[in-house]
Amino acid sequence: MSTTDTQGELWEVFIQSKAGQPFKHAGAIHAYDREMAIENARDTYTRRGEGTGLWVVKSKHIVSVQPNEEGYFFDPANDKVYRHPTFYDMPEGVKNM
């Protein structure tokens, strides 16, 4: 058996279920080029009309945060409660806010 991996590259698949909805990660597929990637994504993840839109991107191009290596990565959000509307006490009687 050959020891070289000839399965093609790994691509991540994102599906938009309806127009106007955000694209959601569905899984991954293998493909050798863009055309095959989008067709494989269709055949694998949308056999029952699950999507109206599809994105595929090579897995190696995705940048992500490794939870334990970057423990403090999300910390800047922790001390900024003033970004949430509930931070602000409103005077009684104020409307449409």
Binding site: S2, T6, Q7, G8, Y32, D33, R34, M36
Partner: peptide, 14 residues
């Protein structure tokens, strides 16, 4: 196997 091998080559050219 030959299909995968030639597809690999094509994808490298792309």
């Amino acid at each position: 196997a030959w299909v995968r091998e030639s597809a690999m080559l094509t994808s490298l050219i792309e």
